[in-house]
Design a protein around this nucleic acid. Structure first.
Lengths: 240, 240
DNA sequence: CGACTGATTGAGATTGTTCAAGTTCGGTGG
DNA sequence: CCACCGAACTTGAACAATCTCAATCAGTCG
């Protein structure tokens, strides 16, 4: 969203993975110079605009994507079309189910996104040889599992209003983990429909809950996507 | 449930981990004879009766539990007491959040349970040295993540009736993965309240859905817990 | 046999959905 | 710059699903 909407689809851009500022926190931070050089010869930095699919549900996986910028949503769909978003991935997460030949879900750019695409076998060989990398990916899997279970509580036991508050909280925290103070300003990286699909609600219910949070002075919204959280503490108190 | 309800609480029984029949599929299957011997000197086989807590939410973890028999439920609770079950673990799963000092959830015996308890540091050292073990635990984490996401779809997007059918399906498959044919007979390893907490429903709704499945001839229930699935295919068709 | 726990059933209240208008936003072309 | 357009969002009213509360039933334990 903070990204001029050029009409680019999956455009390669000539930048190496190693030059990315998020690298030390992500996968690449576990690699030594030789490995980075090796990797850079096999990876491509790609841009996807909002809505583009990175990997389809039940399709073969031939590469993993390291998120450099933007937000990727993971979703699953029932036969009749009902959809559930089962995870959001922010930089510097690695997108893709390790070791699976078939993706258990769809990965799609929620906002405009920049990723570093690594061939599947390439990464898996690297994991074999590099314990630090292996540990990082293990930690990511465990963290994602924690988050998935946390979200199960939200889906199963919270009211619509608590669900919406919880999502705003989640995004506020993920988009700017180091921010201080009680206020937050950010752009939602997803549409109302995405939000509804994440929360297990309809867009109408989501909209009503946003209106209520506005009326109660906890947030203000401009241009549909631009959110100002007046008080994280008050928002937290609505999360159930 | 298939276990006489003696009043035993966390009783030690003098059997080594290596002697268990499930070992080749679980963690211990990745160990060589030396490691097994080493392990057997530091582990204890324990029995827990239904309802006993193995690990409390937000408490320190000092050991992991390898499930040998029975079902362990993982749950999280909101401040006001609303509870959500976020996972079920069957033999030969390892219970416990790897590498965390504090457990993100409660682990509790859903049925009477037998576990092999391994000290935390002991197992973590073993993981360092044994790539096969590491891979198994990585695979378990990834599988649990898949299951958690699968369940998010159920929680977020399925109707009460589909939720109940999905749970019966899940249990039928897990309790007897190798069974053939279209019928299944098993004992529910959990109470109606547990089921409700797993599905994000109330016990009344769960009960009504069971009654409906009975009326429609898809299952029959005796003694509250004993389930006969007349047709897995029909049950599947109700899973959404 | 009573008391107790867990499960079922019913009736009414509540929450969230559905369907049907409106409204706002962002882009496009005159 | 403004009018127009489609997509995304909001709002309202009726409806349906699920919850809540209360009564009843079944099985178990003393």
């Amino acid at each position: 969203m903070d990204f001029s909407r050029r009409d680019i689809h999956s455009t390669e851009i000539p930048v190496l993975c190693r030059s990315c500022e998020v690298r030390h926190k992500g996968m690449c931070g576990a690699l030594n110079p030789d490995e980075l050089t090796l990797l850079s010869r096999h990876t491509r930095q790609l841009q996807h605009s909002s809505g583009e699919e990175l990997v389809g549900e039940s399709t073969d996986v031939e590469a993993y994507d390291n998120v450099m910028r933007g937000v990727v949503k993971l979703s699953k769909t029932l036969e009749d079309g009902r959809q559930q978003i089962v995870g959001l991935q922010f930089a510097p997460d690695l997108v893709g189910r390790l070791y699976a030949t078939e993706s258990p879900m769809t990965a799609e750019a929620a906002s405009d996104v920049e990723v570093c695409r690594v061939p599947k076998v390439m990464l898996e060989r690297l994991i074999e040889r590099n314990p630090a990398l292996r540990k990082r990916l293990m930690d990511q899997a465990l963290r994602e599992l924690d988050e998935a279970r946390e979200w199960m509580v939200t889906l199963g036991r919270k009211t619509a209003s608590e669900k919406v508050a919880s999502l705003l909280m989640l995004i506020a925290v993920h988009l700017d983990p180091d921010a201080r103070g009680d206020r937050r300003i950010f752009d939602l990286p997803m549409s109302r429909l995405d939000i509804a699909d994440y929360l297990g609600l309809t867009i109408e219910t989501v909209s009503r809950q946003f209106s209520r949070l506005k009326k109660d002075g906890i947030i203000s919204i401009t241009a549909n996507r631009h959110i100002e959280v007046q008080s994280l503490a008050k928002l937290q108190s609505r999360c159930g």
